[in-house]
């Protein structure tokens, strides 16, 4: 797809908002950028009120950089820490009432398809573990069963961080939190398995201590959601306040958790593999060349 259409008509530059001009001139609008260029261009998400050292912010920052066409992307969120940062970005953000985000995104994604036809307009839902797995659970699962074409990203900090540390469905069994002093009595919900059962075309887990992997996972999820079906990414984004992680040890914790229970997993449906290969030239899913047949020893 060409990126050429993001240009100002001659003489109209000064009527565009400064944020938009900045994004076109010094930011990622209309260009291809990657995480290796970070620090040298103006980012879509600049200032935000999140806590110092928050891993969720790092993930959101990487995710927004990874959007294949940020100028054509709309983010949807709900109550929780994440929306404090996402709503500050220079791309449209829709606030779904608590739990409604996937319902809102379904309507939005269908409406954009009616209005813009073939021109891709990506809808990305970024909500916390409470918004996705507890309060919004019904709408999340229904949007997946309906194969709504947008991406759902769970910012899994394993706690209700914004309201003082209550346990959520994604909290690990036995975790003791400020508002769960006896420890959680139930297992962590297996949302990955549920996403696969509900028919998501792409399901992945990721931890933000590998920026390149975050980038590639988000790109694939957004591209697949354009035509194939629902995609789901579950990201471990620790809450350093509620889990009392010193801010300079946040990445160390991410590494430990990645090795322990958040290994990188990726499920891509056959249809999605074919779509990525044919449409966007991904070479990872091409059939592997057959191993050379073992040499048959000549009989003397």
């Amino acid at each position: 797809m060409s990126l050429d259409y993001v240009k100002f008509s001659g003489g109209f530059e000064k009527f565009m908002p400064k944020e938009y001009r900045d994004m076109v001139e010094h930011g990622p609008f209309g260009k291809k950028i990657s995480v290796s260029q970070m620090g040298s261009f103006k980012e879509i998400l600049e200032e935000h009120p999140m806590c110092a050292g928050c891993a969720m912010t790092l993930f959101i920052r990487l995710a927004i950089i990874a959007f294949p066409n940020p100028e054509d992307t709309i983010t949807v969120g709900t109550a929780g820490c994440g929306r404090l940062a996402i709503s500050q970005a220079a791309i449209p953000f829709v606030y779904g009432n608590y739990g409604d985000q996937n319902g809102v995104a379904s309507g939005l994604s269908r409406g954009l398809r009616l209005r813009f036809g073939d021109k891709p307009k990506d809808v990305v839902v970024m909500a916390g573990d409470g918004g996705t797995a507890d309060i919004g659970f019904q709408q999340v699962l229904h949007s997946w069963f309906r194969k709504e074409r947008f991406t759902t990203i769970m910012l899994d900090n394993e706690v209700y961080g914004n309201t003082g540390g209550q346990e959520s469905g994604m909290t690990n069994r036995g975790a003791v939190l400020k508002m769960a002093p006896l420890g959680k009595k139930f297992e962590k919900m297996d949302m990955l398995q549920m996403a696969k059962v509900a028919g998501c075309a792409y399901v992945a887990t990721v931890v933000p201590n590998n920026p390149r992997r975050v980038e590639s996972v988000i790109k694939k999820a957004v591209l697949i959601a354009r035509e194939v079906g629902s995609t789901y990414i579950q990201a471990y984004t620790s809450c350093n306040i509620e889990y009392a992680i010193p801010t300079d040890k946040v990445m160390e914790d991410a590494k430990t958790v990645e090795n322990d229970r958040y290994q990188f997993t990726e499920y891509v449906s056959d249809e999605a593999k074919q779509y990525l290969t044919e449409r966007y030239g991904y070479k990872d899913y091409l059939p592997k060349p057959a191993a050379p047949a073992a040499a048959i020893p000549n009989k003397a």
């Binding site: 620090g39 040298s40 980012e43 935000h48 110092a52 928050c54 891993a55 912010t57 920052r61 990487l62």
Partner: peptide, 16 residues
């Protein structure tokens, strides 16, 4: 190595 620019949670804070 540019690693710090990729790991800072604050956007456009560590610049290159």
């Amino acid at each position: 190595c540019k690693l710090c620019t990729q790991y800072c949670p604050e956007a456009n804070t560590i610049l290159y």
